[in-house]
Write a protein that binds this DNA or RNA. Sequence first.
DNA 1: AATATAATCTATCGTCGCTAGATATTGACT
DNA 2: AGTCAATATCTAGCGACGATAGATTATATT
Lengths: 195, 195
Amino acid sequence: MTVTDRKSRERAEREDRIVAAARAIAESEGWEAVTIRRLANEIEYSQPVLYSHFASRDAIVAAVAVEGFKELAAALRAAADAADGQGDALMRVARGYFAFALSRPALYDAMFILPTQLMFAEAETRAELRDGFEAITAVVSPFCTDVEIVTETFWAALHGLAELERSGRVRSGMHEKRIALVVQAIINAESAEPN
Amino acid sequence: MTVTDRKSRERAEREDRIVAAARAIAESEGWEAVTIRRLANEIEYSQPVLYSHFASRDAIVAAVAVEGFKELAAALRAAADAADGQGDALMRVARGYFAFALSRPALYDAMFILPTQLMFAEAETRAELRDGFEAITAVVSPFCTDVEIVTETFWAALHGLAELERSGRVRSGMHEKRIALVVQAIINAESAEPN
DNA sequence: AATATAATCTATCGTCGCTAGATATTGACT
DNA sequence: AGTCAATATCTAGCGACGATAGATTATATT
């Protein structure tokens, strides 16, 4: 069935082109410029073809978001691997997260800001969405007992820092200090945590 | 000139009704349900009238956001005032911030999630937008020397916690522990900060 | 070659933010 | 009081959006 194979391969390639085009336009012109018509032009097919790949525009955004979660996890793991010591790993992951969010704003929007139907509730969550969380867990775990709570809090702090920085709600140029503060808090967490 | 007075008062009232309607619809049906036509129906005027009050739909969202910043500042101050001691104040402000974000999701969206032209860069920032920040500063200052950095970081952490909780990205029902962790980090900050 | 199936297109729907131009209402001046 | 300019408001419509129905072309099977 090599013919069907070729067909489904071509279909998959076309789908990739849709997602890639969406991401590229979003990154260069913002998500509001990502329209079905624009994407249809980009891949040189008519609009209804897009709906044979994705149920809605939101599903395309979600596909880009999933890419983002994969890349974030990879970036965090790479940051951890390059570290010299557990404290350094924490710092590098923090910096890596922050840099990721600020260097790919549209991607980060798709992952965390735009409304999405992606499921995050633990059981049904797609592996890609958990992967970044586990990368953070790995560097946090040496510093605490209740790993999950601390990971969630660390993640939230990083997300908040990135978010407020991205939107200009805090002074720019000071992020290194804020990141250091968060990292130091994790290092100190053990002593404060056992109640 | 009591006639002109009455006119401009009626105008102001109508403007308030627009903002109130936008907020009510957003809170009950989400921001995508807030359309110019819907608002026009709500206030019983035609659509162009709205444009004599606001330059665009975004400006209406921004008006709701400004209301939100006022109320957030008031809520945080009230939380601080009700506190028994500096540590308790920190905890109450943290809980207050979190509860604010989760109890008025659409309002919080307008303030922090939806794209807006509101200026946050220090000089030109409207007083309302700074007020909440200063309320946080007040409770943070006893615990650190570099007040501004710590306030920004505390705020970011709270924002991140609220954001991840709102979107179901962290386990629900565990927020009290995470908040306590953040508050404890601030209390410990002084010892860690001077480098 | 004929026919069934799949792939793709054209054309359109209802809605959106927003605006131009017409109309009604108001206030000022003789 | 009556004319006229200015203000307030409306109706109608533009172009673009997400999404879909139904026609049309291409492909595969008998």
